[in-house]
Design a binder for these strands. Structure first.
Length: 583
RNA sequence: GCGGGUGUAGCUUAGUGGUAAAGCUCCAGCCUUCCAAGCUGGCUACGAGGGUUCGAUUCCCUUCACCCGCUCCA
């Protein structure tokens, strides 16, 4: 991507963020206190938008399907849950940084190194050292060191108090660094490599031509203190725990530590048997849930995209193991995308990928704004058989909205093991017991809202009545999820009959949809305000409505956000006319 | 977490070691017979905390937030 194109996209993102704030879609959390990194609030329009999106997902799962039921579980669960799921161990990794390249590594992924460690006490600038030597001939301080000029090493002479001597030298010269550093050189490799790396290290700390101070060597075995790539010393390991910790009960003790869930999925697994029992479902079937989740992200970025508190829409769709499913018979008359009893996990996985893409289209994300990424085998998590990411092309990059993972029976098996409770399903048809497998479409609500906002944002250049160019900002939300469905205006505010009639129309529509009444300012201004809010329809009550032309009595104009064209509709048909367009 | 940048009203920008300016938005009123018209009036800001100073929005330090790059992302 070119720099200018990148700048343009960044500018677009800034405008979107600005509009979100100006119109009340998204605010920074705790703004009056200076904000808090990784947390965001939804304003009036944002709250409606988010609610519409979640409601629609929920309806698509539980109302329009027979094979999915809902769950609304608690955020805090028994801590053992997270041991079973693997989160407490894999979510807190000790991390180290390379002192030379600043690259961050996971301690557990470092291959232990064996070789010779070369340690230095610090470095001084070569030019300054010689200058000092010239200006102070015979100085005791200089005499205390032996210069190995071939290697560029200042070695304290035997018998001197090394620490004190080095400190004295440091305080006499300007360009010094007294940070100790070491490099590990594998057995059989050249030792001058260590000095080269050490010099580079001190150069990064501002010493142009470093003379290394002291050089001690030590044989080291199976150490993870050094970067395998370059031998450089690493920082002390630091814990990166992504779980939000809290205490259950008013006393803070080790015994009552609990965690805010990092995903909603585990509650579904933990309640699998109870839901199965009460819902009278048979495999294959799914349990879905919408709810908050919390992750202590190392670095929240990109507006709401990576937040520490966020919301998920997750489905765990339980299926039969392939060998059981294969015994069932398919309906030969069914169309190819209709689920069949003999489908294996691969077919179910592909089915859900396609279902989810279609769903994104139905909320206004076009197929060409999305990307689908099949994770290659080497990237897969240990539990996953296959994972597909659905990504959206955000102005700041193409990023994940949803992951659809085929997780085998990993989760249920883990919970069975950790809880000691059976997670097996008795298959009446096959007359056998087994732990079901699962396909998990897991979507981030806040990411989706951001994608929807980015997708909807339009700047239209239009020529006004005076022939002047101006920009019309319009949020082209799919009517189905638009925060306000219809705005109702009296053409003029200072005609009582128009105002009364407009309020009547508002009340007429209110039971069916989000309505917004506005009578302030010129009619054009009111239209434009609704354009920025993404309201798909504006209804205006004018003198025809009141009967100026008898045959137009009780008709209103309905203005379309995207075309700015108007239809004249009788109030009797208005609610249905509108509803048809956003159902 | 590292490096770089930014922070003045709801938004976009001026500006200054000595009373902080404008445009748009917003609110009220007038006017207005369909796309940000006009007139009158009004609200609202130097991110926070220290320091230097008679006096700091301005200079210094710390901190917070945001943006960019790296890093990280079960």
């Amino acid at each position: 991507m070119s720099e200018s194109n990148k700048a343009k996209l960044n500018e677009r993102m800034e405008k979107i963020v600005s509009l979100c704030k100006r119109r009340g879609f998204i605010f920074q959390s705790s703004e009056i206190y200076g904000g808090i990194n990784g947390f965001w609030d939804y304003g009036p329009l944002g709250a409606e938008l988010k609610r519409n999106v979640k409601d629609f997902w929920w309806r698509c799962m539980t109302v329009y399907r027979d094979d999915v039921v809902g769950l609304d579980a608690s955020i805090i669960m028994h801590p053992r849950t997270w041991e079973a799921s693997g989160h407490t161990s894999t979510f807190s990794d000790p991390m180290v940084d390379c002192l030379l390249t600043r690259k961050r590594l996971r301690l557990d992924q470092i291959d232990p190194q064996t070789g010779t460690a070369y340690s230095y006490l610090g470095a001084v600038d070569r030019d300054l050292f010689f200058e000092f030597q010239e200006q102070n001939p015979g100085s005791k301080l200089i005499e205390a060191f032996e210069l190995h000029s071939d290697d560029g090493i200042l070695k304290p002479r035997p018998g001197t108090d090394t620490a004190q001597t080095v400190e004295n030298l440091m305080s006499s010269l300007d360009l010094t660094c007294n940070t100790a550093y070491s490099v590990l050189i594998p057995d059989g490799e050249r030792s001058d490599q260590a000095r080269k790396i050490a010099r580079k290290y001190y150069q990064l700390r501002g010493i142009t031509r470093p003379l290394l101070i002291d050089e001690q060597t030590e044989h080291v075995e199976n150490s993870t203190r050094y970067n395998p790539e370059n031998g450089s010393l690493l920082t002390e390991p630091r814990e990166f725990n992504l779980m939000f910790k809290t205490y259950v009960g008013p006393v803070e003790s080790e015994d009552n530590i609990a965690y805010l869930r990092p995903e909603t999925a585990q509650a579904i697994f933990a309640q699998f048997k109870t839901v199965l029992e009460v819902s009278r479902q048979k495999l294959p079937f799914g349990i879905c849930q919408i709810g908050k989740a919390f992750r202590n992200e190392i670095n929240p970025r990109n507006f709401t995209f990576r937040s520490r508190e966020f919301e998920q829409m997750e489905l765990e769709f339980f299926i039969k193991p392939d060998e059981i499913a294969a015994k069932s018979e398919a309906d030969s008359n069914a169309s190819p995308d209709t689920p069949q009893p003999n489908w294996g996990w691969k077919q179910w996985h592909e089915y859900w990928v396609e279902e989810r893409i279609r769903w994104y289209e139905s909320v206004g994300l076009t197929r060409d704004s999305l990307d689908v990424y099949w994770q290659p085998a080497e990237e897969l998590a240990h539990y996953a058989q296959a994972t597909v990411d659905i990504l959206y092309k955000f102005p700041f990059g193409t990023q994940e909205l949803e992951g659809i993972a085929a997780r085998g029976n990993f989760d249920l098996t883990q919970h069975q093991e950790f809880s000691g409770k059976s997670m097996e399903y008795f298959d009446e048809e096959a007359k056998t017991r087994y732990v079901p497998h699962v396909i998990e479409p897991s979507a981030g609500v806040d990411r989706l809202i951001l994608a929807i906002i980015c997708q909807a944002y339009r700047e239209e250049e239009i020529i006004n009545e005076k022939g002047k160019k101006e920009i019309r900002n319009v949020m082209q939300f799919h009517p189905r999820i638009a925060p306000i469905k219809v705005a109702v205006f009296p053409l003029l505010k200072n005609r009582r009959e128009l105002v009364m009639k407009a309020k009547e129309v508002r009340d007429l529509l209110r039971p069916y949809m989000q309505v917004f009444y506005d009578d302030a300012g010129a009619i054009g201004r009111r239209y434009r305000r609704q354009d920025e809010a993404g309201t798909p329809f504006c209804v205006t009550i004018d003198f025809e409505t009141l009967g100026e032309t008898p045959e137009l009595l009780d008709t209103v104009t309905v203005r379309d956000r995207d075309t700015m064209k108007q239809d004249r509709i009788h109030t009797r048909e208005l609610a249905e006319f509108l509803q048809k367009r956003f159902r």
